[in-house]
Structures are given as structure tokens and as C-alpha cells.
Computed example of a mutant assay.
Amino acid sequence: MRTCLSPNSVAVVLGTRPELVKLAPLIHELGDATRLVHTGQHWDEAMSGRFLRDLDLPRPELLTGVGGRPRAGQIAQSLGQLDAAFAEDRPAAVVVQGDTNATLAGALAANAREIPLVHVEAGLRSYDRAMPEEHNRVMVDHVSDLLCAATEDNVANLRAESLDRGRIELTGNTVVEVVRRQLPDRAARAALLAAHGLRPDGYVLATVHRPENTDTAEALGAVLAELDRIARAGTPVLFPMHPRTRAAVERFGLAGLLERLAVTEPVGYGDFLGLANHAALLVSDSGGVQEECTVLGRPLLVVRRSTERPEAMEAGFAALVQPGEELGGLARAWLSDTPERLARLAATPSPYGDGLASARIAALTAALAGRGAEPVVPLAA
């Protein structure tokens, strides 16, 4: 452990599997100072329990009655239980990450009890007010005591909103560490591809789960039709299907568009990285994949109307596309020059830092909690 904190003194509040992934290296840095609190926003033993084991995380305090509620209900239910927990056993600091309902609930609970609050991955902005996550991340930034910004663009976003510069720290993104640690070794990756009947650099890996792509038959049908077209042209498409997407396919009668796709159940995080590491092209609406592709050096088409992570686009790893012809046309263009594109991306550094973000954030958190810490290694701009 790199910090000088008392056991269980830092409450790390999260509620989704992506938060487990992104916060894992920070939890390891904090060591026994971590008090892990899971709101249950995304909780099931098969998926969340597996992520805890795969990421070597401690068993969390688990809130009840949160999952399955609408946004306001999730926040309210989480906030009430967190407030009671913090009143009974007050932490020295609270850490939240990103922009989920759990993030906002944890931030409000800390603010209400005047507990120092750390926001990991602060300063992301899509400027799309139709995204609930945009409202969450803005509110959390404005009540946080320490804003851990992953990139210079994130720092600029925070300063543009007149947030105190003394609260803002450029730390890099923990995703760099996560990917490096969780990527299976060469032999395991070879076995993984063999199990799916795939060859390196010869397939598309696709994931779709966001409401903008699954809430209407038109949007989901447009995405699946283009994936089907890619498969018909001879490039295998591996499609680990999210439960929300599977339900939408059944609801809208779109199962016929899956016949040529290699559809699987959701895969573990390490397996996903192993598959992504050898894909000729990634197609996804995930925020995390936009970061992971820059560490893996793989091209990504982001099927969304907006993004809070423009760095991957600016560095040449990703492009924002709409479902339908725009997705299909660019996918075919990128697949046509796969060797050249992969060589170019392999030589391009990730914009998300040097892999030391969690050590910086742990030291800053310890300093905020008033316990002292090792000196923070600055991230080169």
C-alpha cells in the first residue's frame, strides 16, 4: 500500500461493472484503506461476482433495492442508504468515478455529510443534454473537493466552468493500467481465438447496449443490418450480446439479423480485452471501449450521436458514426486497409497517460484525507 491511511477509511462508492474495472487499480493502491460500497445498480452474482473475482477486489458492502428502478429511484434509494452508512461510520474521504447514478448518489452523500470527495475521471463533457450521464458528471464535478482529470482536455473543461484550479489535478486515466494488467498473455489469447474459430486481424468485435441504439427497432435494426452485411461479405462478426440488447431483439422481432453473426453471452473483462486485442475492427457504443482501444492499438467505430471522450477520435483510433449506411460505409473502408491502419495505430501512443494514474490518485486522496502520502509523480502534459 502506497498511502498512510487507516483501514477502511476511504469509501469507494460504485454501482456498475465498468466502475469496478476502472477503479480496480486504485482500490489495489489504497489497499486495506478501501471500504468498497456497491449500490447494486448493476448487480448479479454471475456477472458482478465474476468481475470482483477476476479483478481481485474485496467483497463490497452491498446496498439493497436499487437495481431495476428508474434513474431518480436509483439515486434516491442509494443516497438514503449511503447517508445512513456514513452517519454510522464516517469515512475520511469518499471516492467516486465517472458519471453513473451510483456516482451521483455517492457524491451527494459525501457532500451532505461534509466528507472530502474525490471524483475520478472528472471533466468529461459530451455537451449532449439528452444524456443522463452528462447531468450526473457535471453535478459531481461541482461538489467535488478533488477533481482527478485524465487528460488536458478534461482539465480545460473544468476550468471553463470556473472550477477552482486548486481542486483540479491531471492524473491520467486508470484504464491504461487496467488494460495492461488484465490483457491475457499470448498463449491464452491464442486459445481464446481458437475457441471462437477466429484468426488474428480477421474479424469484427461488436457490442451494443446503450438506449439510443436499443430503444427503437429502427436504431437497433440499422446497427444489426450493417453487422449482418459485414458478415455476409466474408468478415466474421463476433457479437457478445448485452441482456438489454437481447431483450430488444426479441421485442422488435430482429432475430433474423443475428443469423450470420457469431452471437455469444457477455464475456468476462479479460476475455473481452483478449478478443479486442486481435480484432481488425471494433464496433461499439461503450464509453470504456473508446479508451481501451487506444491502449490496444485497435480501430473503433463509435455508434453514438455524441461522445464525452474526443481524445480517441483526435488521436486517430476512433470515429463517431450513426447507425445504418454511415456505420457500414466506414466499416468497409477501414476493413479494406486493415494492415496499414493497424501499423499506424500500433505506433500511436494512448492519449490517456502513462499507467501511473492510480498511484497519483491514491496519494492525492490520502493528502485530502489529511493523513499524508508519498509525493505525487506529475503527469507530463
Rank of each mutant, 00 (worst) to 15 (best):
2 R>D: 14
2 R>I: 14
7 P>Q: 11
8 N>V: 04
13 V>F: 11
13 V>P: 02
22 K>S: 03
23 L>N: 03
26 L>H: 08
28 H>E: 15
29 E>V: 00
32 D>A: 09
39 T>V: 08
46 A>L: 12
49 G>T: 07
52 L>D: 06
59 R>N: 09
62 L>Q: 12
62 L>F: 10
62 L>W: 07
64 T>K: 13
71 R>A: 15
71 R>L: 15
72 A>F: 08
75 I>K: 00
78 S>I: 13
80 G>F: 08
80 G>P: 02
83 D>A: 06
84 A>Y: 05
85 A>L: 15
88 E>A: 15
93 A>E: 03
97 Q>N: 12
98 G>N: 12
100 T>M: 00
100 T>V: 12
101 N>C: 10
103 T>N: 01
104 L>K: 02
104 L>Y: 07
105 A>W: 01
105 A>C: 11
110 A>K: 00
113 R>V: 05
114 E>G: 09
116 P>A: 03
117 L>H: 02
118 V>Y: 11
118 V>E: 04
120 V>Y: 06
124 L>K: 06
125 R>S: 03
127 Y>K: 13
133 E>H: 09
135 H>R: 11
142 H>Q: 15
142 H>N: 11
144 S>Q: 06
145 D>I: 05
147 L>Y: 05
152 E>D: 14
152 E>P: 00
153 D>N: 12
156 A>Q: 13
160 A>S: 13
162 S>G: 02
162 S>K: 14
165 R>Y: 00
167 R>C: 09
174 T>K: 09
175 V>P: 04
176 V>P: 01
180 R>N: 13
181 R>G: 12
182 Q>P: 03
185 D>G: 15
187 A>T: 14
188 A>R: 15
192 L>Y: 11
192 L>T: 04
194 A>H: 12
196 H>N: 11
212 E>C: 04
217 A>S: 14
221 G>W: 14
223 V>Q: 05
227 L>T: 07
228 D>E: 13
236 P>A: 12
242 H>W: 01
247 A>S: 14
247 A>N: 11
248 A>W: 05
250 E>C: 05
250 E>G: 12
251 R>D: 04
251 R>C: 09
253 G>Q: 10
255 A>S: 15
258 L>A: 04
259 E>H: 14
259 E>I: 12
260 R>I: 04
262 A>N: 05
263 V>A: 01
272 F>A: 08
272 F>G: 05
277 N>W: 09
280 A>E: 06
283 V>R: 01
285 D>G: 01
289 V>E: 11
290 Q>G: 11
290 Q>F: 07
293 C>A: 15
297 G>P: 02
298 R>C: 13
303 V>G: 04
303 V>P: 00
309 R>M: 07
316 G>R: 07
319 A>G: 13
325 E>V: 14
326 E>K: 13
328 G>I: 03
329 G>D: 09
330 L>A: 13
330 L>I: 09
334 W>S: 05
338 T>M: 04
344 R>E: 13
345 L>K: 08
346 A>M: 06
351 P>T: 13
352 Y>V: 05
359 A>Q: 11
361 I>M: 10
364 L>G: 06
367 A>F: 07
368 L>W: 03
370 G>I: 08
374 E>N: 06
377 V>G: 00
377 V>P: 00
